[in-house]
Design a protein around this nucleic acid. Sequence first.
RNA 1: GCGCCUGUAGCUCAGCUGGAUAGAGCGCCGGGCUUCGAACCCGUAGGCCGCAGGUUCGAAUCCUGCCAGGCGCGCCA
Length: 558
Amino acid sequence: MKAKIARILENTYEACVKEGDLDANPLPQYVIEVPNRAEHGHYAANLAMALASIQKRPPRKIADALLSRLADAEGIIERAEVAGPGFLNFWVRDQVWRSFLIHVVEEGEKFSASTLGKGNKILVEFVSANPTGPLHLGHGRGAALGDTLSRILEHCGYELVREFYINDAGRQVRLLGESIYSRWRQSRDPEYPFPDEGYHGQYISELAQRISNETDLESLSEEEAIALCADRGKEIMLQEIREDLKNFGVEFDVWFSELELHKSGLLQETLRLLQSRGYLYEKDGALWIKTTEFGDDKDRVVRKKDGEYTYFASDISYHLHKKRRGFDKAINIWGADHHGYVNRVKAALEAQGIDGQWLHVLLIQLVKLWKGGQEIKMSKRAGQYVTLRELVEEVGRDAVRFLFLTKNHDSPLDFDIDMAKKRDPNNPVYYVQYAHARICSIFRKAQEESLALPSQPQEVVNRLELPQELELIRIMAQYPDLLEEISKALEPHRLTYYLTELASAFHRYFNLGTKDPACRVVCQDPKLTQARLLLAQGARTVLASGLGLLGVGAPERM
RNA sequence: GCGCCUGUAGCUCAGCUGGAUAGAGCGCCGGGCUUCGAACCCGUAGGCCGCAGGUUCGAAUCCUGCCAGGCGCGCCA
């Protein structure tokens, strides 16, 4: 709907220029918004204010000029006015809203599909947890964010790939093997040392148990046994990670192995490329990359004195590979503790002639867990933390996914388990789901009375006249615009707020019927009932679509 | 010390990317079910948008400097 208003404004501007009311200049950046206050119209535009400095005239004068030549070819505007410092406020005709509702019902969930991303390929890399331990809450937040963002981008027409980068090459996998092996040895020799930086946690002992059941570790040398523990441990953990994510509603298109990067020779090739561009040099026996030439604080080591490549070297190569795969944009979702990394990866990309803007890194801040009014402290080193699996088992997938998206990713998130488990208004996920279930209940009631959606909606839709009914349609009309804005700003949390608002408008409308039976959806008048069923169906469509994009269920009963 | 993030109602957070009288949920206080689901609705109270400057028609939003909190500053991954 915003696009329609924009077209009117553009045509109006051209008309004003043509008639000599305004000087010929390119259209400036301006905003069309849904005002907070109803008396400011259905839509408001700040075009006249944006033009003021260019045209060197007061904004209200410009607004008056625009208004006098309003180019509303389709005839959708009921009323327009100049207000405040120079806003153009628009009221759209009721008939237009009613037609929009029919459009929603006829198209179903695809009514909000967009061509914004047509022909654009995006890679979203998220979670990317080391296969050395179970997923924790931070991974869960990243999973919810990455998956919902992916779903929204796909909905807006982008060609999208979800990718999980597996850090299976470095020392940490070796350490996993040593930790498992040590626990196995300790089961018969309690004095056997545990590695200094080893992985703690119950799961290590469980892995030791499982692997020693599969294989006769006694028959292997220590070195062979550790290698086997590392290999199997990694495999099993990866399998668990996949399962956890699947249960969380998240599936990846590509599982990209760091080890493959080494094996395929891609890593060496990347370094040769950098070498030929003159960005590598030797110092103190190590190989360095000149990231300082691209804004990094200091140069970074890519190959250590001992000949091993750094994690950073893999990452440079990995991101170059992403670029080569033809993506127009890469989005990475990282924990905030990796923020120091952003500049150096971008610097390395620029060293290879790639614009750093190509890579978008979303940093997610910490998740704190609260229970019984107390923070549950987590320590990865001590192996004490709540896993994603435990949280999902305790509070349910829907609540976890929804609540992880009620805050901007760069703001820390306090997750209150007691609140999340409540099936009451403290919990916004049930508030939204309840609206959906309520609508389903209305349709069950209608069916009992042999009433259904009209076959000729045009003939009854004019019966929607209550302000609350038209308001509900207007909120539905914001949905496609919102999804496009989310796609541009990469801010999926806005969807949860929108759905809460939509649910609220529906509950408000529904409650009219508790005071006045004439306001019920299923009422005495069959035509009016049909019209209201259209409205309910539209609201249900948007709620189901939005919940679907969040990866949250849209229940018919609760 | 340097870098990134955060600071908005008692609490947890939004604030459409610079717009009009700053919003929501919870909590407090008060009201609403005899037929579509009360897991709901309606109302009251509650604000130096961390502080101080600056930019302009206009700032919670942009810039500078402080203050407070979180995270990060390895030839670890």
